[in-house]
């Protein structure tokens, strides 16, 4: 993997990689298929790759290059986009499926968007095309991201060690350096959570299966699911951002109510 990554920087390797990649994809899938978390079981129809390629050329190539070889820097009218060989179907499904890609304008960070540009079929086609370039993590199966099969208590422990420092204890998100941020994890589908851990989008580190096993990823998804479905026992959450919003509430609403009552109390009756 590492050696492969080093070589793919070499422009001459692209074409060969493409060929090998196409060949290896099937083989790789076959090899990892028994692990439910690692690969989709459905075969990739050829027309899906072709459809994905045309979609890619129309929508993604301006940044990522015609053959997804990437653009290193954004000189002039060119916009930088990383090479995509080897990122896998999971990365495509995550980036496009959460509306982060295609990016409408270059920014510090691609933001999650509610209006996803493509249908799930089109996303699958794009993913199939990118996956055909070089082997990479596949979209997880439904079973792999089923929160009911995970252990939320252990997922919570894993979450606090591996995730909470950026995404906050309640998955509300947090700040990173220079305007970057860790987004909120609330109401994100388990599939996208899984893919994000698997592929390490943007600033996020990669949590490969050797780091957090597929079962443990499902535990984390189960924990996040309890956050989404679980009640807020104490009432309004104020964004689950910790003491800052609580203090703000005390100053604005608490003090405001008290001063209003104090003014009423001191005013002469009509």
């Amino acid at each position: 993997m590492n050696a492969l990554a080093a070589r793919r920087r070499h422009p001459a390797a692209i074409a060969i990689l493409l060929m090998i990649g196409l060949f290896l994809t099937g083989a790789a899938y076959a090899a990892v298929a028994p692990k439910p978390a690692d690969a989709t079981t459905k075969a990739l129809p050829a027309q899906s790759v072709e459809e994905g390629k045309s979609l890619f050329r129309a929508n993604c190539a301006s940044c990522h290059g015609l053959n997804a070889e990437g653009r290193a820097t954004g000189n002039g009218d060119k916009i930088a986009g990383p090479p995509l060989a080897g990122v896998g179907a999971a990365a495509v499904d995550f980036q496009v499926g959460t509306g982060r890609m295609p990016m409408t304008a270059p920014g510090i960070q691609a933001a999650r968007a509610d209006d996803v540009v493509f249908t799930q079929e089109q996303i699958d086609a794009l993913a199939a095309y990118v996956a055909s370039l070089a082997p990479g993590p596949a979209v997880p199966s439904e079973e792999a991201v089923d929160p009911t099969k995970g252990n939320p208590a252990f997922g919570g422990e894993l979450f606090r060690v591996n995730c909470a420092m950026c995404h906050n204890f309640a998955g509300s998100g947090g700040a990173l350096t220079r305007g970057k941020y860790a987004p909120s994890l609330r109401d994100v589908s388990g599939k996208h959570i899984y893919e994000a851990m698997q592929t390490g989008p943007q600033s996020m580190p990669v949590f490969s299966d050797t780091n957090i096993t597929p079962e443990n990823k499902r535990d984390i998804i189960a924990f996040l699911d309890t956050l989404d479905s679980q009640e807020n026992p104490g009432g309004m959450t104020l964004g689950s951002l910790g003491p800052v919003t609580e203090g703000l509430f005390a100053w604005v609403f608490g003090l405001g109510i008290f001063i209003a009552i104090a003014i009423w109390l001191g005013a002469k009756a009509a």
């Binding site: 993997m1 590492n2 990554a5 422990e157 894993l158 060690v161 990669v206 490969s208 780091n211």
Partner: peptide, 21 residues
């Protein structure tokens, strides 16, 4: 050892861009 799983880590497990506690 990984925190909190307490399992050892092979060098090959650590892919580029990943972080282990």
């Amino acid at each position: 050892m990984k925190d909190p799983e307490n399992t050892p880590i092979k060098a090959s497990d650590v892919t580029i861009g990943s972080v282990f506690h």
